[in-house]
């Protein structure tokens, strides 16, 4: 549905998007994650034809987005990271206004608009002036607005920013609903866990580069690798503890061991099999293991790790460049 190849965007000498590639299949929900200034908005705006790319290619449903702009506009619904509403227009009028831009006959546009307002739970507010709506309602209105021409691809730029938990939940339900209607959705956020629940694929971006992208399950598995192992020994076994620390340090997958009175924390870069082998070794040496626990992958910490790794690499490269 959406295919980005080697996309680059430079502002003067500053590279905001650096040769990124991504592919979003039909019906997928693609989560676009990255810290501030990563280049998410820039990428999305290029896809919608609001910005010119420096180089690269964007294909939407098999159509070249840079060549056939008008055709592509009818395939995309874009919800920007701002509202773009008029003060003096009522909710339904706002919908009709954008509906008429897509040449929808005025007899049908009201019906379509009402349907969409119902979808985003705004059907009771159609006679309200737009600027009276709350932030969450405005966000949902923008969503309905972007759907007025029944686009196949929906691009949402931080639809959750500034929303309270309840509004976030509603937004998530709406997005899931849209996905079940067969829409392809690209959604950006700063927060990975928020996206992971509903997305089928994610791409992590930082400083203009796509660092990781792929199916959520694959990335989750990867994240498990970075989790520490917590080992609890039965109390009063201080000798056994020393022995255990020695043993664990010998394991090639161990990066670091720290301990408190009763627990050991092992920074372990192996998978489940390697962890099981370590446990077996401990038990064979008669170490009184009372608990052996590895937390499930936590996307937030994975995200932080990815970002900090990329930051380290960036500074290292910069250092090289300076020398």
């Amino acid at each position: 549905m959406l295919m980005i190849r080697d996309l680059t965007k430079k502002y003067g000498r500053f590279v905001a998007v650096n040769h990124i590639n991504m592919h979003v299949g039909k019906g997928e929900i693609f989560g676009f994650v990255g810290p501030n200034g990563a280049g998410k908005t820039t990428t999305m705006r290029i896809c919608c034809g609001l910005l010119k790319a420096t180089s690269g290619q964007v294909m939407i449903d098999g159509t070249d987005a840079f060549r056939a702009r008008q055709a592509v506009k009818r395939k995309i619904g874009y919800v920007p990271d701002f509202f773009g509403v008029y003060d003096n227009l009522k909710v339904l009028e706002y919908m009709r206004f954008f509906g008429s831009m897509y040449d929808i006959p005025s007899a049908q546009v009201t019906e379509i608009a009402r349907g969409l307002l119902k979808l985003v739970n705004l059907d009771e507010w159609e006679e309200l002036l737009v600027d009276r709506l709350s932030r969450g309602m405005k966000q949902r209105l923008c969503m309905a607005r972007a759907l007025i021409h029944n686009p196949q691809l929906l691009i949402l730029d931080e639809p959750n920013s500034g929303l309270d938990p309840r509004a976030r939940f509603e937004m998530k339900e709406i997005i899931k609903n849209l996905s079940s209607m067969g829409k392809t959705i690209v959604i950006s956020s700063h927060i990975l866990p928020e996206l992971a629940e509903m997305c089928t694929s994610i791409g992590v971006m930082d400083r203009g580069k796509m660092i990781v992208s792929g199916k959520v399950d694959d990335i989750m598995k990867q994240s498990q690798f970075t989790q520490p192992i917590r080992i609890r020994l039965s109390s009063g076994a201080s000798e056994a503890k020393e022995q255990a620390v020695r043993l664990i340090r010998e394991d090639p997958h161990t990066e670091k061991v720290t301990f408190t009175e009763e627990e050991l924390f092992v920074t372990f870069c192996g998978g489940d099999d390697e962890a099981a082998r370590l446990l077996r070794q401990l038990i064979q040496k008669a170490i009184p293991v009372a608990g052996f626990y590895r937390e499930k992958g936590d996307l937030e910490s994975l995200f932080m790790k990815i970002i900090s790794t990329s930051a380290r690499q960036a500074t290292r490269q910069k250092g090289k460049g300076d020398r």
Binding site: C48, G49, K73, P80, G84, V85, F98, M101, Y102, H149
Partner: peptide
């Protein structure tokens, strides 16, 4: 009001 931008994503 940033509505121009939204309009430019329509036909």
């Amino acid at each position: 009001k940033q509505t121009l931008e939204v309009m430019l994503t329509t036909p």
